[in-house]
Design a binder for these strands. Structure first.
Lengths: 234, 234
DNA sequence: TAGATTGTTAATCGATTAACAATC
DNA sequence: TAGATTGTTAATCGATTAACAATC
């Protein structure tokens, strides 16, 4: 079955779940497991077994009844599906707190992303290094992007600067922007943007907390034993 | 209409969109606007007008035909709906790169969240300050949580330490965990967890990029104009 | 008033879940 | 073999979108 009409290879919710499968499968591989059933994956990830089978099917993995899915093959298929098999270089634009953290975060390597440099408009920051990565002036952006064939940028500037920075990224030839600002960016059609909305996640958590416990009387001292049967300790 | 069966006040997708409305409405307020139509909001946020009206209705705002929604009232309603009207204290557990960044990130204040301290198991970090916030040993967690009546924790420890740290958070009386690790945490039913899955966002971006441009020949120097219909391949 | 905009009720769309025959 | 597990086809569920009367 070829993809289709919309050009979408898989529904976005499926794409969003794939990294979780990948994480688990790698853990299983490290533990020496060669096969795993959709049922087992589902239990571990709190999903329905049928959903796991459907999701994996999108990547092209084929399982064997009674045996399950081959761990190594599943990993390879997911990585290929997400284009995470070849490491991709990226730059961070805006080297404030969040940007600085992402500059040094080696964890993205597991997802095929290697951050090579940071860019900033603040002369005080330019020329320094953060976690061993150089911070360069925005003027150098286009040059570096073209020379290193960089397609992806991580945007962590203050909200007010987001659109201006985006315009420069587009001019420099960047094709994909991972947007950590709350701004809805204007970009030409050939540039894709994924907004990472931390506030959305916090909103969900806030509502869930209110649903679970409701508003709590402020500043009332709870006595001794807090909860269930925990014997945990301190 | 009262909420209902599931106890959910609004569908989660609605909750996730509310912060974007809030952001825009505050911008409008700062610009002196007193009213705004759902149509206008929709244009600005790339949504359907009907979706905006429905979403806002969940918060209890009532609009006026021909006039639209009152900006100030809408802001107040959304804030109340999300429990963002009273600032809530939180702690960061794990003061590595991401944790350190979140410790110092003042932006959460706009979302009613104030980070008061960081916790770490590494003796080298304990006792120091990051962005003016103290880093304390995990032993002090329970004491501080109880004294300051803290309900929420931001979890940014390495994956291997995630479950152990979670157990301590639960024992200390934390009720909500904003989980930045890739681990599916085990918690008792009275504790809510929101997993912030950066890898999921990156997966979406990767797939969108591949759909828009396809795989690009690695390390081939593009001459002048890279653009559209290139017959790329390898 | 006239017409832009709301809120409600109904239709559509897409994702998740269920059922079950095929199979190793 | 027997039975656990897959993949397919159909049913359900929930969110988004459409239509439109009410209204300021």
């Amino acid at each position: 079955m070829t993809p289709l009409s919309t050009g979408r290879v898989a529904p976005l919710p499926v794409v969003r779940r794939l990294p979780a499968y990948l994480w688990l499968l790698r853990k299983l591989r490290a533990a020496g497991r060669t096969h795993v059933s959709g049922t087992h994956i589902a239990q571990d990830l709190n999903l329905e077994p049928i959903q796991v089978r459907k999701d994996l099917a999108y990547t092209g993995v084929v399982g064997r009844p009674r045996v399950g899915f081959e761990v190594a093959e599943s990993i390879a298929r997911i990585e290929a599906f997400l284009n995470w098999n070849n490491t991709r270089d990226a730059v961070v634009v805006g080297t404030g707190r969040l940007g600085g953290a992402l500059l040094g975060y080696e964890g993205f390597l597991a997802y095929g992303l290697s951050v090579v440099a940071g860019f900033d408009s603040d002369p005080a920051r330019v020329g320094t290094e953060i976690h061993g990565k150089p911070v360069m002036p925005l003027d150098r952006l286009e040059d570096l992007v073209r020379r290193l064939n960089i397609r992806m940028a991580i945007l962590t500037v203050p909200a007010e600067a987001a659109q201006v920075a985006t315009d420069r990224l587009v001019a420099a030839g960047i094709e994909a922007i991972w947007n950590f600002t709350p701004v809805k960016l204007q970009v030409p059609p050939h540039v894709v943007v994924q907004r990472e909305d931390l506030a959305a996640g916090l909103a969900v958590l806030s509502v869930m907390l209110a649903e679970a416990h409701g508003a709590r009387a402020p500043a009332i001292e709870p006595e001794s034993a807090p909860s269930e049967e925990d014997t945990s300790e301190a």
